[in-house]
Design a protein around this nucleic acid. Sequence first.
RNA 1: GCUGGUGUAGCUCAAUCGGUAGAGCAACUGACUUGUAAUCAGUAGGUUGAGGGUUCAAGUCCUUUCACCAGCUCCA
Length: 640
Amino acid sequence: MNIFLPSGDKLEIENGATAFDVANTISKGLAKNALAAEINGNLVDIYAPVGDNDKVRIITDKDTEALEILRHSTAHLMAQAVQRLFKNAKVTIGPVIKDGFYYDFDMGDDKFSPEDLEKIEKEMAKIASEALPCKRRVVSIDDAKKEFSHEKYKIELIEGIAEKGDKTVSLYDQGDFTDLCRGPHLDNTKRIKHYKLLSIAGAYWRGDENNKMLQRIYGTSWFKKEELDAYLNMLEEAKKRDHRKLGKQLKLFTIEDEVGAGFPIYLPRGGALRATLEEFERKEHLKRGYDIVYGPQILKQDLWKLSGHYDNYRENMYFTSIDDVAFGVKPMNCLSHMMVFKSEIRSYRDLPQRYFELGTVHRHEKSGVLHGLMRVRAFTQDDAHILCTPEQLNDEIIAIIDFVNYVMGIFGFEYEIEVSTRPEKYIGSLENWDKATEALFNALKAKGLPYEINEGDGAFYGPKIDIKLKDAIGRFWQCATIQADFNLPERFDLNYIGEDGQKHRPIMLHRVILGSVDRFIGVLTEHFAGNFPIWISPVQVRVINITDAQLDYCKELTAKLKAEGFRVDTDFRNEKIGFKIREAQMEKIPHMLIIGQNEADNKKVSVRLRSGETKNELDFSDYISVLRESDQNKTLNLWR
RNA sequence: GCUGGUGUAGCUCAAUCGGUAGAGCAACUGACUUGUAAUCAGUAGGUUGAGGGUUCAAGUCCUUUCACCAGCUCCA
């Protein structure tokens, strides 16, 4: 019979051959490295049979699929080790995730301890050295249920498969361990060599908080030792960039027990950074035709009932009362903005109306989710609401996407786009939801931007485009979001007078660019590892003298820089220059002006950059123009 | 909220079996006046997250609670 290779070449091979035979026919070397195969687009084991006219691709450790297969097999290896060591451990599921895998176990009343990870790793090494072949078996649903009669979670999974209409399931045997699994797998446990179990955590069965909490073990696995080491090293490096650690070191913010969990306090350095960011935002919004507005922190509960927040968002809100009238602390800024629109009769000529507010909101987040500045209970959004006509909707969405792109470009962020559709809890008509969702898709298509769809993850009042930024450890954080809303204008009975003299309903866009300013600062900190670009750096320049003899000149320079609006501080302590440089370096200050007698005599400045590079004996006017350029161009470079 | 772990000086961390709470850095004082990542000496700093209990004796054991860390669920 004949099979086809990825190159399109035809290969003649004996009837009944397996993918391994294909590899072996091509070359001995390939056969040695062959881990799995892709037959007609489906991933299969290396010993899977091939049929006439099949398209066959041999997978080796060079292919991306191979890592996933390795990790999946490592998860099985770990489950086997766990069941050898813990007789009452029930297996559930063990999928591959980014950079690794996990496996969930029901341990009954037992718990894993951190020391258990080492024991399990040792047992895994033992099983790997036993060189157990991993063999696939296909059995009927009934037989599978008999075989797993003692594993209730597997029974549940098998029943789920049966419900989908499948008559058989595949099982993988390796020695004394059998798992229900679609595969494919590596052919032998001895191929699993470079792995590490990373952490233990609880996880609900099937991700549902009403279900039992299982014990999860996370791990990673690689083909080469160097790859494993590099990955573990990367995790260490990422820890150093953690904004909570850097936030403390660089004195950006603090979260105190006495104040309350999830309520950050900005220290002067963090305050300087944040103020700069907010000033930048105000300017950019004014450039783009937004008006700045302000609303109160608490609004009457009745208004939250009208908006639907009371019915749909109450668990996340804080309430209080004033003279027996119920009020709610705002978790969102939209209500005030609705009232801004209603404050006048609007003509179609007035639209679009764009209201911008750096609005601080409070949300009751569950205690377990709080995380530095990334997840807090009080945060400030760079929030805006745009009210426009249906005809203007598409252009408005596109303008927001351009805005987001401009801002992310300044920081050099990578991001991913998701469209979140109607959730289970929603307000308004299906027709409006369809229109709103359509509008978002159209704008993304018009910009030719790639996106993923996140079913059922929209806000209760409308679908949204989410922009997610990547943090130091590769986690994604939602920052910008654009939400189309046909519902709130209806609930608040917003109208404008059209060309025809009749009342019409505007459409509302909710949108944020940075999202939460607080979260954005957290992401920024990790992104730059605390080495902020000059324009946003809390301290831009530190003036350092060599001896007291240069004090007057140093003070003169400092005053001039301050007068120009730069963030300058000084270190005139009676310490050696090396010591003062070291401190400035650890504080990640971009520019140090090192002023000795030479500089004072000749009225020059010498600059040491955060990179260690020096620019000696410059005219002050030249130096200040460098700073001005950095501020104006928002450059990521330390010099020009 | 749930599961597991961790809370010791401003920061980073010690303290063996339950037996006198300690170091480095920072702070403060003094000397040194210094040229590109740590000058030297001295002083002070604590109800061991908080409450309750066991014990002759608790940082250490038990218990309640708060916070933090990892993850789950949820989310900007």
